[in-house]
Design a binder for these strands. Structure first.
Lengths: 222, 222
DNA sequence: CCAAAACCATAGTTTTTCTATGGTTATTTA
DNA sequence: TAAATAACCATAGAAAAACTATGGTTTTGG
């Protein structure tokens, strides 16, 4: 029987242990499972890179958010996913997301296009088993809450380009409008204009930035 | 126990009978089901419209393709869905699609945003039951093949506007490029330019229209 | 082989989006 | 509370993108 090798990257060790023991205990028809873990971004990255020259993982579990939100240099599972897709394209990738960072699903679906996406509150032995079976035979597997987020963003026919996304992102982390100039190659009036447009698109015309961000998150754009 | 009233619109009577008997036989925890049927676009439309003033259906099953493909006036489940959303917005909508017209999923998700989407080869008593439970509690429900199509279109960060879609559509039904001018408010060179762009976007640079259409369908744009 | 269609290229026009600039209003803070 | 700072708004002009008109070349189908 084939052994499936999984690397789980999550900074909560207990959570990873949960995955590990559940998965290694399940009786799959066609394979058994071995789970390796990494509890930091750096360690995960190293293990992924090392696997290129040794033997590759079959599946990667990536926590969406690997470090506290307000860190200066956000290190995300998304980055690891992008890296992995590049250097080990045959390895299947599954994201594990807290509900609170579920709004990143849109960006992740585009940048990584993972085989699976699970919201942590929906993870149990049953969904883990179903997920493994699905991604090994006919991906993708998305949990219900992930699907709800996907549905929300698919249903909208609003077009937001990279600059808009950057502006929304920097606003969402509290960057002042005038300071966004440094991160986006637009002039200040250019950014102000786009903010006006975005407020109009999201129907928060006479409201503040907070309302804009909230609506953008609701619709799955950040 | 509450009775869920369903209207199924499909031009294959036998298929509808299948749904009807399966669903009415299943023992749901919270409700029983009654299925009404309509075997033509017109009849379906009439029943939907009549339901506004009498008592509304809880769920609509809509076949994506209600008339043979090459008909002059294509009458689709999508149109019925758009109508239903407008006049009976609380009614849940589930699309049933053959695999062959599954590429319309993108457009349907935007225009109707249905609670469910099932590819017919994946429909059986088990999936029907799961679907009903899911849409009544926490939509959406998409079958695996529908998900694969959704994933394909989500993963691409290609932006295609209405004109591009029209051009692709008319090409796909065999309209000559020069005749598309009549359907899209662009000049002939304008259309040619967009075709060039599209070929470049889809990496079918030196190939014919057929390759372009195939690729656009693969990626879920038509 | 001929005619139709597809394809390509260029110049000029229109439309859109951007910048530069400067003024007004709101918010923060010393 | 006054001063400073940021957000917001408006306009003119520049730059970029997309479109049209035109005419030529290549490909396709009968």
């Amino acid at each position: 029987m084939k052994t499936i090798r999984i690397l789980a990257v999550d900074d909560h060790e207990m959570i990873m242990m949960g995955y590990k023991y559940i998965l290694e205990d399940i009786n799959f028809n066609d394979f058994t499972i071995h789970v390796e873990t990494a509890n930091t971004f750096e360690l995960g990255k190293r293990k992924i890179e090392d696997s290129v020259t040794s033997f590759k993982y079959d599946v990667l579990f990536l926590d969406v958010q690997l470090t506290p939100p307000r860190d200066t240099l956000p290190q995300t599972g998304e980055e690891l996913g992008i890296l992995a897709r590049k250097i080990i394209p045959d390895t299947k990738i599954v994201f594990l997301s807290s509900f609170s960072d579920n709004y990143r699903i849109n960006s992740i679906l585009k940048s990584v296009n993972p085989e699976g996406y699970m919201v942590k509150t929906e993870i149990d032995s049953h969904t883990l088993e179903a997920m493994m079976n699905t991604i090994m035979t006919s991906p993708p597997y998305y949990t219900n809450k992930a699907l709800i987020a996907i549905r929300a963003s698919m249903a909208s026919n609003v077009v937001i380009d990279e600059n808009d996304k950057k502006i929304l992102y920097y606003l969402s982390i509290g960057t002042k409008t005038k300071d966004i100039v440094a991160h986006v190659s637009l002039s200040l009036p250019g950014i102000e204009n786009r903010k006006r447009q975005l407020r109009s698109i999201f129907n928060v015309e006479k409201q503040n930035d907070q309302a804009l961000i909230r609506e953008a998150k609701n619709r799955g754009f950040i």
